[in-house]
Design a protein around this nucleic acid. Structure first.
Lengths: 242, 242
DNA sequence: AAGTGGTCTAGACCACTAT
DNA sequence: TAGTGGTCTAGACCACTTC
């Protein structure tokens, strides 16, 4: 427990998470912060930072004056909505062997709404990549990513199979920082229903989102559809602070 | 800037949020942490805690070595999915004048799924409260809350109009700590569509959730439906840590 | 009364960005 | 190179739960 990077806090967090999952703590009671600090040879602050992250993930909960405890219901959440990054990972977390099929890669002029979201001129060319994520042979997720052609510094559209964040780093030299997402209920139209292998009109969740880079500039406009019977999203909702 | 409770961190957070919203910071640049600490007469740690919360809310973003900046797109999010607590507040945040109509209050035996979620015996009595939230005269949210009758220490079912967390504190002496929520796409059936004032079969988001108290015990099982055309949920998705 | 988590301080050093 | 945010320490005091 000496090397930095990953940070001490990260190491402590991973270490504690492993012990929690392994059931090391009797009756779900986690040792006091002072005790953990002494045991692991780090400051109480470092322990607290690690515990705070585990708490916000739902792995533990704390009661002032009483102690820190394992949160069984929270432990069962696999794909936390706020933390989804790569759909391959989501499917892998669900125990599936994921694969990706590229449906199409096209260049199109941006309509007004898309241009506005991406902060480019209406009508300027946008690369549209449609992909389907499958578990074994069942389609689960259908996504459409739109990237302004002007952001591409080389023509790597053959690399559409790559995860989006990797594609953006490789061909736009921009790192995705976060998505601003809207959750929309839809009835799948014929084309999308066929691609996802369900009857036309099946209810589905749709994410309409904008991806921003580290400089807070929009880089990608995504639309995604999900097979509710195969993949369901969960999250923890807490009381808002101040 | 002396009194405790609300905590110094909370006060700093609120203070900074006000200045951000008011546009006090030129070109979206927020003063350095050291500077803020000196100006407000608190330690840098306190400033950092406040900034961290504003960052997770999406109000600001930080770049190591560069500075801290206002996050315009994040500022526009009104109802952040992870922070929803009372639906009245959600509607008020959207600029509506909310009202509540109690559709029905009944006692029913718990079916197996509900009993399991609430950790009670199958068939034990559950109080079911159905409510409709309206903005002006338009229905927006339909909810159904199920509470084990055994948790009620007095018969206050006439108070169903109260927000759920207030009802639980008043009649069960339990404080809601968090919800574990599942997001489900549905097509509204005739009854629900009528209550929400939309055509039968309209796609809608449904929350299936369990509310837990401070001791991490389940206290309420809720199901909610939303008018997508009137209320749309947003959230920020970030890269998961470790 | 003892022990726990919650808040806050003051200060050190590092990693990174700007110029 | 100067200035920024990122990490970590050691220690103090408070609020709360438990016995």
């Amino acid at each position: 427990m000496i090397a930095r990077n990953p940070s001490l806090t990260d190491q402590v967090k991973v270490h504690l998470k492993e012990r929690i999952v392994a059931g090391d703590f009797e009756a779900g009671r986690i040792p006091s912060e002072t005790e953990l600090a002494a045991d692991l040879g780090v400051s109480r602050t470092t322990i607290r930072d690690a515990l705070s992250r585990l708490e916000s993930e739902g792995s533990i909960y704390r009661k002032q004056g009483a102690g820190t405890f394992v949160n069984e219901p929270g432990l069962q959440i696999k794909s936390r909505l706020e933390e989804i990054w790569s759909y391959e990972e989501v499917l892998r977390d669900h125990g599936y062997a994921p694969s990706v099929r590229v449906i199409g890669v096209n260049e199109k002029p941006a309509d007004e709404a898309i241009a506005n979201d991406l902060a480019v001129e209406t009508g300027s060319p946008v690369l549209v990549m449609e992909k389907l994520f499958l578990e074994d042979d069942d389609p689960v997720i259908l996504t459409m990513n739109r990237i302004p052609v002007g952001y591409l510094d080389n023509d790597g559209r053959d690399d559409a199979v790559e995860p989006l964040y990797a594609f953006l780093e490789a061909h736009c030299h921009r790192k995705l920082a976060y998505y601003l997402s809207e959750i929309v209920p839809v009835a799948l139209d014929l084309k999308k229903a066929r691609l996802l292998g369900v009857p036309k009109g099946t209810p589905a969740i749709c994410f309409e989102e904008i991806g921003f880079d580290l400089d807070n500039a929009p880089v990608v406009r995504s639309t995604s559809f999900f097979r509710d019977d195969l993949l369901r999203f969960r999250l923890i909702r807490r009381r808002a602070g101040a």
